[in-house]
Design a protein around this nucleic acid. Structure first.
Lengths: 355, 355
DNA sequence: CCCGTCGATGTAATCGATTCCACGAGCGCT
DNA sequence: AGCGCTCGTGGAATCGATTACATCGACGGG
């Protein structure tokens, strides 16, 4: 592969001049510039990003460590992150932690070794020493979706409290009184917060959330199934189940179907994180939708701000309830939100730039 | 951030010795080794991968350019690729082409500039000069899922012909005679092949595939809807529709639902690419399942073989039909494949290592 | 006792860029 | 005419590793 030296030789100038042309430095004669450009063209020269990074100490690369790529919510997040990063002149390396702290650590280490300019993390746990040290050492970093309390890093996330209140009101209005939750790992903020928000909203309606109705999941489908089976085995099973993410809701759907029961007739189901498929499941699933694309973009902007020396602020956007049929018949007054005129393929609140 | 010089100073040795310890070169005294290791520990030193890559001309990184991350099939492919690569000591940088040749080119160029050791591509089109030049220039490369004819690069893919024949037999057995296909872009091999396989299988049953029953899609959901609407507008609409990928099937489901029609009563639907959600849609969708994880792993092995100087062979694995209810009632004899005992969350043929 | 060998270590070149500094030419101003 | 600027350019240092080659001491065989 041709190097800058080859180009210099071909153009009859020094490597310094070639470099100047490539980084369009002002003081290069028009003559030299055209000769260099011609040489670049004829050799098919492309600058070596590795060498450039070594010298400039910048990789123009962002690291994104997410909890689970197979979760459509995170897939969409990753996509929007890459899009915004590209628009700002950065590329993205994704690390999939699969909800495993050891894998998360592996990726963080790998990304740090590659000297990425900044790190976007949706932590799987309370944070390994590695990550906390990196944050303290000044690696530009932003948390997205989930975060770690007590660390001085901007957080970009959705606030689901209002939507959870709407959900509980919805469930209450449909007559459900015994309601349960499939929680996420207590080590994650989203795992804890969703339970808390749910409990508070229930209390406002004079309802209780007994321990037996709090199932411990891990944000993966299998745990949703297991927990739901536990609920169904209770002497007094819940009338409604709220899954703290979409994969656990899928597992719950599995468990219910395996028993030969029906949603919502035998048991109601709702989920956190709305995804296109929920429109087409049997029945369509009532869910809390996050402004995923907006979150990804805001997170990148905050991170790039930090990298380039600007403040880089935390952002919190509201999530919102999307009522479908999995909790019972919707309010007669409100029309089905995924009706014919609105393309149901896309999550309603999202405006995607290309399809 | 501490460099190898700092470690050398701290340990009271030369950088050469530090490097030897780090790459466990045999001739280093036990004494020097422990001093270096202690220095590494106390400084929290991590070798700079950028510098190392520049010197050794190896990045231990694979590039993966896929057509669309939001497609669950490709998400799973990406996941298995990363897994196998990690096991072999490589990391992966993913580029999402979003079915756009210009974006594909952007990512290929970016990856090449970063001097990745090898490239895994699922081409969106017939191949840009950039990609073809890279292949000719000897960049280790492997095509996965889709490929470009006439290029000397190993191909790892699934053969869907047998499964398509099974599907057509299934449709025919249920009494469908007027069957249509939502095709993928003609610029892709999978786009063409699936139409061809379908046509041949139909001919074997004495059925025809008229032009009006071949809708041109682009593997994205929106095109599936548009094409399906076209089919439904025909004077004689098809009785069954075969979507060449899962997203277009989702779009088709949308279109049918928007007309107030039902699958499979009003029109049958089947899809290429099976995904977990198809178990839970209304109705569950009959689909052709690829051994996605196996494809990803085989592709990585082939690529790493090439990189490390071994041959690196093409691999073709069979796809298989998974009958559900979207084409009409299944054969009374065969039991529903996604029944209670088999966790329906996972695509049946897949054995995933961690859930 | 001398010399060859081997093991441990250091010095310095190298990878491919960027960039500081020096230098010479040309030009304007006094 | 001479001084000082600016402009265009090249030489060389530098980034952080790896590694070929040189060196030096110890040791064993003849």
């Amino acid at each position: 592969m041709a190097s800058i030296k080859d180009v210099a030789a071909e153009a009859g100038v020094s490597v310094a001049t070639v470099s100047r042309v490539l980084n369009d430095h002002p003081s290069v004669s028009a003559d030299a510039r055209t000769r260099v450009l011609a040489a670049v063209e004829s050799l098919g020269y492309r600058p070596n990003a590795v060498a450039r990074s070594l010298r400039t100490d910048q990789t123009h690369t962002l690291g994104l460590v997410i909890s689970d790529v197979m979760n459509p919510y995170f897939t969409e997040l990753a996509r929007s992150v890459e899009e915004e990063a590209r628009a700002l002149g950065y590329s993205v390396i994704i690390g999939n932690a699969d909800e495993r702290p050891d894998l998360q650590d592996h990726h963080v280490r790998n990304l740090l070794d590659r000297r990425i300019d900044g790190l976007l993390v949706s932590p799987t746990d309370g944070g390994s020493p590695l990550m906390l040290d990196a944050a303290r050492a000044g690696t530009p970093m932003v948390f997205v979706d989930r975060w770690i309390p007590g660390v001085d890093v901007p957080v970009v996330r959705a606030d689901g409290r209002a939507a959870v209140r709407d959900l509980v009101a919805h469930l209450h209005g449909l007559g459900h009184r015994r309601v349960a939750i499939i929680a996420g790992p207590a080590a994650t903020t989203t795992g804890r917060e969703r339970v808390e928000a749910f409990r508070e909203a229930l209390q406002a309606h004079g309802l209780d959330l007994p321990d037996a109705y709090i199932g411990q999941g891990d944000f993966q489908a299998e745990s949703g199934r297991r927990v739901t089976e536990g609920f169904l085995d209770l002497a007094e099973p819940p009338e409604a189940v709220f899954a703290a993410d979409n994969l656990m809701a899928l597992g719950a759907l599995d468990a219910v179907r395996a028993r030969g029961l029906r949603v919502p007739d035998d048991i109601a189901l709702a989920a956190f994180d709305d995804i296109p498929w929920f429109v087409h499941t049997d029945p369509p699933v009532t869910a809390i939708a996050q402004p995923t694309g907006e979150l990804g973009r805001a997170a990148v902007r905050a991170l790039v701000d930090r990298i380039e020396g600007r403040p880089g602020e935390s952002v919190t956007l509201p999530a919102r309830l999307v009522v479908r049929r999995s909790c019972g018949e919707p309010y007669p007054a409100s029309p089905e939100p995924d009706s014919a005129q609105a393309p149901a393929v896309q999550p309603p609140a999202e405006n995607r730039s290309h399809t």
